[in-house]
């Protein structure tokens, strides 16, 4: 019985909570890449901004870093989104006209600049040591209810963002961004202001990533420069979106939960391995330590399998039906270009 409760706790506080945060992140990336074709390789920077803004604004006074504002947590999360959006707007103003591969290079650079600023402005962020003791929503509730309430909050956030994005996807705005993605020149020829829409999409996506950062700071109750390491933020979010199905909101959410489960649960399985395995007469020693690398390998393997078997992701993009009065609709599914 205790074991079952243990698995339950693990599913709540790791698989669903962290999986949910990655789902928020992947949905943010889906607006930028899936909807509009903006290659943002600087996800880590926006998460970092969101996480630090949240931590600084909601914490009580501390000698090591800026703080003492003690704002209510929802306000902190909103501020995290706003600051991430403002920074994205400034970046977008400068680089949004760049073609996708150049935009990728620019955003990698900018994300690193953001991370280095956060690491070096010690008076505000406590530098490389990071901010400890971040407030977490519902932590005053007894265990495990606090964790459950927090997980429900995150899953509700995922649901709300998902519904809003589905709505946007079917709206004229969503159809226009896909038009820009698929053929920028023809969208421009149709008289659309391409830059403005690209900028809107970039800013909205970044604000959502900032929100994911605010949740990340709460889960860890700590935020430091290493917490937003690009491998487990930028890279992992891209794998999740591509595997799940770029351009499909359901795919983005599925990819996030699936890959986080692979990442996290691998270790439960490797924990069952014996100390030494004999493969065709060759003993392999120290298996538990070595097998910690398995999950990195498995992420790559999942991506390979998905890309081989489902080239457009597990749930490929489907064109939204154009709302017609007659009710019968449509463009054919799948990308046309």
């Amino acid at each position: 019985m205790e074991e079952l409760a243990g698995y339950g706790n693990y599913i709540v506080s790791s698989l669903l909570t962290m999986g949910g945060i990655y789902a928020i992140l992947t949905l943010g990336l889906n607006i930028q890449w899936g909807f509009t074709g903006l290659f943002n390789a600087g996800i880590a920077g926006f998460i970092a901004v969101g996480a630090y803004v949240f931590a600084i604004l909601t914490k009580g006074p501390a000698a090591e870093h800026l703080g003492g504002y003690d704002l209510p947590l929802p306000l902190g999360a909103i501020a995290a989104m706003i600051v991430a959006a403002i920074i994205a707007w400034a970046i977008g103003k400068i680089c949004i006209r760049l073609r996708s591969d150049y935009l990728a290079i620019a955003t990698i650079g900018i994300a690193e600049i953001l991370r280095l600023i956060l690491k070096n402005e010690t008076w505000a962020t406590n530098g490389p040591r990071g901010i400890s003791g971040v407030d977490k929503a519902f932590e005053w509730l007894p265990r495990p209810w606090g964790d459950i309430a927090f997980m429900v909050t995150i899953l509700l956030t995922v649901l709300v963002i998902y519904l809003l994005l589905e709505r946007a996807w079917r709206s004229p705005w969503g159809r226009l961004t896909t038009a820009i993605r698929d053929n920028e020149d023809s969208a421009r020829a149709a008289g659309k202001d391409v830059e403005t829409f690209r900028l809107q999409s970039f800013v909205i996506g970044a604000a959502i990533m900032g929100l994911a950062g605010a949740y990340l700071a709460q889960v860890q109750k700590f935020i430091g420069p290493d917490s937003t390491d690009p491998t487990t933020t930028t890279f992992l979010a891209w794998v999740m979106l591509i595997a799940g199905g770029s351009g499909n909101n359901r795919g983005a959410v599925l990819g996030a939960f699936l890959l986080w489960t692979v990442w996290s649960a691998t270790q439960i399985v490797t924990g069952w391995l014996p100390q030494e395995i004999i493969v065709f007469g060759h003993p392999i020693e120290n298996v538990p330590v070595r097998s910690t690398y398995l999950r990195i390998f498995l992420i790559g393997l999942v991506l390979q399998i998905v890309l081989q078997r489902y080239s457009a992701g597990i749930l490929p993009e489907t064109r939204p039906a154009v709302a017609g009065k007659s009710g019968k609709t449509g463009l054919e599914p799948g990308r046309t270009t």
Partner: peptide
């Protein structure tokens, strides 16, 4: 074994698994 990977996200994940 719990792999905390010198990263706070992985640390939380490893701890959750070991404890629960």
């Amino acid at each position: 074994i719990g792999d905390s990977a010198c990263d706070s996200k992985a640390g939380v994940d490893a701890g959750t698994k070991l404890v629960n």
